Simulated assay, not measured.
Amino acid sequence: MTKSVHPGEVLLGAQAGAVTLPVCDHYSGVEARMKKSLALQAEMAEEFGACVFDVTLDCEDGAPVGGEAEHAALVTELALAARPGMRVGVRVHPVDHPAFAGDVITIAGRAGHRLSHLMVPKVESVADVVQAVAALEAADADALPLHVLIESPLAVHNAFEIAAHPRVQSLSFGLMDFVSAHAGAIPADGMGAAGQFTHPLVVRAKLAIASAAHAYGKVPSHCVVTEFNDTGAMRMAARKAATEFGYTRMWSIHPNQIRPILEAFAPDEAQIQIATKIITNAALADWAPTQIDGTLHDRASYRHFWQVLTRAHATGRALPPEAKAWFALAAS
């Protein structure tokens, strides 16, 4: 490290202390799978030297009808028992579901201090966010970040207003419900790994959500790929989400999908080396414009390459010593 001023402080300003979320958000709702997901999270944290994916325990799809309260209690116990330092979230029921209030009281009320986030599905407008925030405050969990799931044409229309709410940390796209909300106007292949990147209405929704998230400094999280045994399809979808659609995070619904997501969203070795060189030279130049390998760089490009290194760190990639030093300083 060549200067005492941290790159994030110089280049990101007020956003220097913003939370950087893992690029993969892994969902499970059945007891045995939730336990396996938490065990895998701990194992991979040892392998990578960092918690490289979130585990979101699912009440909406995981709880049996009539057993919502029991499932909420189970999820709470699993979250409280998770290994320290791991990121564990919970997806509760929608705000208009009869189980929503009980979910929040049980889960956020008892384990809010342990959770990384609370995911609220089927958010249609900022009024739903306000209702969720009020429920968290009533449960004394007013510091718990909210993630929201955008799943309908109306929600896409309201995405910018939703993203602007200060308690919202991330916006996810709910592909399956979005397609089914169109009364058959979008064919079934619009839910597939390939079709979701070609149908105009789905593409428009994805871009709107990513744009809304970036407009307010929030994290856009890409939707599921249901063909979980097709590794090639998973890699293709994750790569498109990361490089063409502006997403910095993606859902996993099967353990087979976690590593392909990490690989797709992580910078490769060449990008890491270039970013390290540019940021090192920028620090030496006291962040003034400088020429590197025949190309002029200034704070706009420095910001981009610092974010490349931040993503590399978040995905557990090996960093050159000088880049490691910056992250060691940030953690101290």
Score class of each variant (00 low, 15 high):
93 H>Q: 05
156 V>C: 07
110 R>I: 09
331 A>R: 11
54 D>Y: 00
190 G>S: 06
22 P>V: 09
46 E>V: 14
1 M>K: 12
325 A>D: 15
255 P>Q: 04
141 A>S: 07
196 Q>N: 06
122 K>C: 08
31 E>C: 10
245 F>C: 07
251 W>Q: 10
36 K>R: 14
290 T>F: 03
100 F>W: 03
314 A>P: 10
204 R>F: 15
86 M>S: 13
125 S>E: 10
77 E>T: 09
238 A>N: 09
16 A>S: 14
189 D>P: 04
124 E>W: 05
27 Y>K: 15
236 M>P: 06
158 N>P: 01
1 M>C: 11
85 G>Q: 05
250 M>G: 03
43 E>T: 12
132 A>N: 08
198 T>A: 12
184 G>N: 07
278 I>W: 04
288 A>D: 10
285 A>H: 03
23 V>P: 15
186 I>K: 02
193 A>K: 09
314 A>H: 04
302 Y>P: 11
168 V>Q: 00
33 R>A: 14
49 G>K: 00
239 R>C: 05
274 I>F: 14
150 I>T: 08
112 G>S: 03
26 H>T: 01
329 L>M: 12
83 R>W: 03
86 M>F: 05
141 A>V: 06
88 V>E: 09
241 A>Y: 05
138 A>T: 11
290 T>D: 08
209 I>G: 08
201 L>T: 11
102 G>S: 15
316 G>S: 05
111 A>W: 02
152 S>W: 04
214 H>K: 03
70 E>H: 06
330 A>Y: 07
24 C>R: 05
293 D>Q: 11
82 A>D: 02
284 L>C: 09
18 A>W: 12
144 L>S: 01
248 T>K: 05
249 R>K: 06
89 G>M: 05
165 H>P: 05
16 A>H: 07
136 L>Y: 06
47 E>S: 02
327 F>D: 12
328 A>Q: 12
67 G>P: 07
294 G>L: 02
273 Q>K: 12
328 A>P: 10
207 L>D: 12
103 D>S: 08
39 A>Y: 03
265 F>P: 03
107 I>L: 04
132 A>G: 12
19 V>M: 14
234 M>E: 11
237 A>M: 08
145 P>I: 01
206 K>S: 12
44 M>R: 14
257 Q>S: 02
178 F>M: 10
297 H>Y: 14
171 L>N: 03
19 V>N: 12
173 F>D: 10
63 A>I: 01
229 N>Q: 14
267 P>A: 03
318 A>L: 13
133 V>P: 09
65 V>P: 11
20 T>K: 13
134 A>V: 09
140 D>Y: 06
226 T>E: 15
245 F>N: 13
91 R>W: 03
46 E>Y: 01
62 G>M: 02
226 T>G: 13
328 A>T: 13
39 A>I: 12
312 A>N: 06
154 L>F: 00
63 A>E: 04
232 G>T: 01
37 S>Y: 01
84 P>Y: 02
21 L>D: 11
311 R>K: 07
255 P>T: 05
235 R>P: 10
287 W>K: 08
116 S>Y: 02
330 A>V: 10
282 A>Y: 01
306 W>L: 08
141 A>I: 06
185 A>F: 07
332 S>P: 11
290 T>P: 02
101 A>D: 14
60 E>A: 07
222 H>G: 04
97 H>R: 04
115 L>Y: 07
75 V>K: 00
21 L>C: 13
8 G>W: 08
320 P>Y: 02
